[in-house]
Amino acid sequence: MSVQILVDGDACPVKDEIYMVALRHQVPVSVVSNSYFRIPEHPLISRKIVSDGFDAADDWIAEQASAASIVVTADIPLADRCLKAGARVLGPSGKPFTDDSIGTALATRSIMADRRVGVAGIGAGGPAPFSKADRSRFLSALDAAIVAAKRAAG
């Protein structure tokens, strides 16, 4: 089983970094989205546009995820589904989702969602702006994940 990268592409801020690292390691990338956007023309990079149904892209990614997959997503419930399929999962900031951390991430997400609803958006800002440090951390984490996945695949 060969290593593959599955990207939750609609709002992914590190697509260019994924392409760069994947091509260096000769690992195929599937960018999954609900809408069209440009990707580099390269045999290792493909686009999968799914229907615009709710969670259609997430469902496709979760169905494809396996122990040979590295999934890049900020979507915590999708990360949970992919971990259960045996995939390695990275957030765009380079922070890995793991079996040990996903429960806390899901609980925090639930609390924050309740808080946003309960206060009608007051004080409920979005995530911090994406930084150069996040980008650098992501590059290192993706490189390490690919090396580990290749080693595990034999």
Rank of each mutant, 00 (worst) to 15 (best):
D134H: 15
S51F: 02
V21A: 11
G154Q: 00
A128F: 05
R135L: 04
V7W: 06
A107G: 01
S110T: 08
K132T: 10
T108W: 12
A56Y: 02
S35Q: 14
V71E: 01
M1F: 11
S66L: 10
A133T: 14
I70L: 00
L23W: 07
L44D: 09
E63W: 04
S30Y: 07
H25T: 05
A141T: 13
P129H: 12
I111A: 13
G9L: 02
S136I: 05
N34E: 15
S51I: 04
T104S: 00
A85G: 07
A141V: 14
D143V: 09
K84F: 04
A87D: 11
I122V: 11
P127C: 00
A149I: 05
M1G: 15
S33C: 05
S136R: 01
R135N: 13
V117K: 12
D143P: 00
G9T: 06
L44M: 03
A107R: 12
I18V: 15
S131M: 04
A148V: 00
I70Y: 06
D99W: 01
R135C: 05
D52T: 09
I111Y: 07
S35L: 03
D55N: 14
D143M: 05
Y19D: 10
V89E: 04
F138Y: 02
L139M: 10
I5L: 11
M112A: 09
P40K: 13
G86H: 02
A62K: 02
D80H: 11
D10S: 07
P77I: 03
R88H: 14
I5M: 08
A120R: 15
K15W: 09
